[in-house]
Design a protein around this nucleic acid. Structure first.
Lengths: 215, 215
DNA sequence: ATTGTAGGCCAACATCTGTTGACATGTCCA
DNA sequence: TGGACATGTCAACAGATGTTGGCCTACAAT
């Protein structure tokens, strides 16, 4: 039995295991990967630090276990693309508002910037859960591009509102927020690809790049 | 002279000082606050770790010095709101693409999630530089709300493309990116406030929240 | 030449971190 | 009763990190 972790078979020590996991999630979510210490997690779970090691091997594997989660994304394959945006935005805002229980997003956002495991998992979740979510019924060639745009807005929202807590973004109530963001997502999902910029826009852009003043 | 740092008066040791600052910026930008060590910075600058302390007091103050920067935002007060979005988006994309010299954004983004000084500075920059940038010529009552929305999209873009490096977002060439993002920003800046959602949208939202299936 | 001082280096400190191994306890089965 | 094994505690190690103080060297002013 030497070298065998308790991860392997079902046990009645699950309560302890869950206590560790929950403590880990909270710590990782609000302090990031580096500032979270095994000792602090153990203290939160009222056990000895060495127990954490026995249950999860090492910090990295503990994080992997704590960051394993599902988006719980709704099945939108039946929803026409025009409505999809509204449902998507409202779904995630609602999910994130009730952040007490599920801090998965915070964990990933806060850790992905310094921990490579977290970053990799973020890309994985994006590839496996976001792209398919957005893809159904959309030209597959365009799906990746559109998903990226959707992600940029949705993650930006999550970042400003729930992690950085920029006052201006926190102040908006969730309904108004959805009303602002949903059309953006709808456009990223449905607007014909490669919209041609107007001549005026091109000119403005070029002028700007060449240092000409406005007007 | 005891207790006096070299910060106070002009010196001919500026080269060393600058070397430290540059090394610090690079480390902070790509490894975040916690993973960046004084020793590593010192090694990059080819000096002794204790020199860093002498020049900047402590890690926190060094970070404060390294994270002091300006957005170099263009003056858009003369630009009509409709054009402002395009110029703004293109300005920042252009700034960020040439990231070799100026990694200011990466420093802030990567450190703001774990370091309170960085987070505070982020809010400050937002309040002092972003809001005014967007405000001119817009109803001041609406400026904060609109700025927040702009920030959510622009920071989300920066996050996905330059920090998380989500392949889907990295793949887009900058021109196409600007063409996608600019209309979003334009809407956030100019669309009449509190757009009323269509009856259908409200119904879809309620249905969804109540767990009804789509269609 | 002496001296004051700024710029720089070296060695060490105290602390914190992940991690390990030895030892105690408790529980279930033979 | 006794032993196997899971569950948990204690103490410690080894390495890294921020930080400090002492010492050396160059050099300009006296």
């Amino acid at each position: 039995m030497v070298g065998m972790t308790n991860t392997d078979r079902p046990r009645r020590c699950e309560p302890t295991r869950q206590a560790i996991l929950q403590a880990a999630r909270e710590r990782f979510a609000c302090e990031g990967y580096d500032r979270t210490t095994i000792r602090a997690i153990a203290a939160d779970a009222n056990i000895d630090p060495s127990m954490v090691m026995r249950y999860f091997g090492n910090k990295e594997q503990l994080f992997a276990a704590a960051a394993k989660f599902d988006l719980h994304a709704p099945d939108l394959s039946e929803t026409p693309p025009e409505e999809r945006a509204d449902r998507l935005v409202r779904h995630f805002i609602r999910l994130w508002e009730g952040d007490l229980a599920d801090s998965s997003l915070q964990i990933l956002l806060r850790c992905a910037l310094t921990n490579e495991t977290a970053a990799e998992r973020m890309r994985l979740i994006f590839a496996e859960q976001v792209i398919p979510l957005v893809t159904t019924g959309i030209d597959p060639d365009e799906a990746v591009e559109r998903s990226g745009l959707v992600a940029s807005q949705m993650l930006g929202l999550a970042l400003c509102r729930y992690v950085l807590r920029l006052p201006a973004v926190v102040a908006l109530d969730s309904e108004r927020l959805a009303t602002w963001i949903a059309p953006t997502i709808r456009r990223y999902l449905t607007e014909p690809r490669a919209p041609i910029p107007s001549a005026r826009e091109i000119q403005a852009g070029n002028d700007f790049l060449n240092g000409k003043p406005a007007n």
